[in-house]
Amino acid sequence: MEKIITKTEKQTLNLGKKLAKSFNGGEVVALIGNLGSGKTVLAKGIAEGLGIKGHVTSPTFVLLKPYVVKGDNIKKLVHIDAYRLTSGRDMEAIGATEFFDRDDCVTIVEWADRVKDILPKDLIIVKFNIRGKNREINIRR
């Protein structure tokens, strides 16, 4: 367990970038935390770290957004938001679970606690707590 305090949005973004550098493909990152706690910012950082150009916007409405990655091993980033979902069954319904065991893919699941029954065992869990304007971020691999 790694505990990090970020003081600005930029620091949260950079944490995502740093995290992405350690990825080899096949990672599933579960983001857990309240509204405004920094989940999408961290996801944007991961995307940036994987070399994705262009805007990575919130997938809340559309539920799942795939991005092409031009890495040696990693070819795809899948950004999922379970905010509007109620169970693992919904995750299957949108085709999200298909990406979990793909070695060429990094999958980020925001609001992962809402669909934990369907997530793989091998997870990177990132928990966000709001501490005033700071964020306490706990990473468990």
């Binding site: 509204l35 405004g36 999408t40 944007k44 805007h55 916007t57 919130s58 809340t60 409405f61």
Partner: peptide, 18 residues
């Protein structure tokens, strides 16, 4: 031009939730 993060409608939904 476009939003670089949340959509306007999404922001309304999330503020309502808060």
């Amino acid at each position: 031009g476009q939003t670089i993060d949340d959509a306007a409608g999404e922001a309304f939904d999330k503020v309502a939730k808060m």
